[in-house]
Design a protein around this nucleic acid. Sequence first.
DNA 1: CTAGAATTCAAACGGTCGTTTTAATGAAAC
DNA 2: GTTTCATTAAAACGACCGTTTGAATTCTAG
Lengths: 218, 218
Amino acid sequence: MSDTKQKILDAAEELFAQQGFAPTSVRQLTAAAGVNLAALHYHFGSKDGLIQALFARRLGPLNQERLRLLDEQESRFGAAPVPVQELVKVFVGPPLRLASDPNRGGEVFMRLMGRAFSEPDQHVAKIFVGQFSQLARRFVPAFARSLRKLSEEEVYWRIHFMVGAMAHTMAHAGRIGLLTGGRCAPKSVDELLALLVPFLVAGLQSPRASIQEEVGAP
Amino acid sequence: MSDTKQKILDAAEELFAQQGFAPTSVRQLTAAAGVNLAALHYHFGSKDGLIQALFARRLGPLNQERLRLLDEQESRFGAAPVPVQELVKVFVGPPLRLASDPNRGGEVFMRLMGRAFSEPDQHVAKIFVGQFSQLARRFVPAFARSLRKLSEEEVYWRIHFMVGAMAHTMAHAGRIGLLTGGRCAPKSVDELLALLVPFLVAGLQSPRASIQEEVGAP
DNA sequence: CTAGAATTCAAACGGTCGTTTTAATGAAAC
DNA sequence: GTTTCATTAAAACGACCGTTTGAATTCTAG
């Protein structure tokens, strides 16, 4: 890949993560990359094309790694379902590990990816979601097998909750969230996983509830 | 409050929830509201002023309700810590219940609020976060009391994970997330809470983990 | 060394942005 | 009925947007 292309992608990662997609202009991008304005459209066709290429560069390898690790676990356990804890590790481990590997985007891309889960722009959302169809086809059945007591719908929703916790953690990695007032130091990736994985495993495996009382209303 | 002001706020809620803040222009807003372009700057000073007013209108009452419910629970249990399940209900119940009350923003504002947690724009993020400082001062100690086995840092992080799952659920309410391919029907608020609350309670109460093995790496 | 393709460059395109200005309108107070 | 003041209206401001153009430059093959 040409040097100019790389420089644009790197600058885009940084600026998109910092400011979001819409408010970041192609002029700001090319200036930060130190290349000519027209180079962006020459190499990527459009701003959307750049965003597409940006996600493809990182998400392809990332999701392939997740699928490879899932293969490993499934062949390790044969006919038996893979323990939930292993599935969670395989699912949330690779994206969080991005943070400590600058060659795969580092903390910057992790933050960007965390935010992308709740991206309002329709074009961007479609580009992003498009990278996850294979992943869903493998992980949803895997979780369903390992959470046999739950209905299909319950499995879906719990995966949904897991994705939310993961995305929020990725988006706000480094500085911990709104509620702590900065009294909480950021963690290494391994420490973070040691905190997140048990939370998710317990949530996924929790007993189903019945709607037995009013919730949250006076 | 003047009729024009209301109409602008309502239109803004709808369009911001649909498209995000940056891509929604004040012209589009005032056109949708059926008012003159200049009315927006007359009543709100600027686009940022509108966003500020928009959050204040809904988040003030919402967070007051949460604090009131927390008061109730704390006086109910006296010196004893409030059970985690009750705290979770008080924390995630009111925002999810917005969805079924059009007078308080309905599903539209809930979606907008869910997205606001990972808003990249610095101005908007500051406006949004500013609404939560009181809430944090009450809920963080309450959770810490009820999760006595955990260190302060662990409590922070688990609240962080909870907020993530909640925000993601709010942002994508109605249509369930990326991984299910639309095979999962949306739920009523009560059904949703019956799914989410046990997940969060189990996660919050999960035993702490030790970093005993490599996680997610080959 | 030269022909041709690939890339970079400066400049400009039409449009839309948030905001401001100035004038017209409406309702209430005297 | 006139004055006053809050609101609405239409038009324009300068700035910035994503994209395109066409020439200059660099690279590569023969």
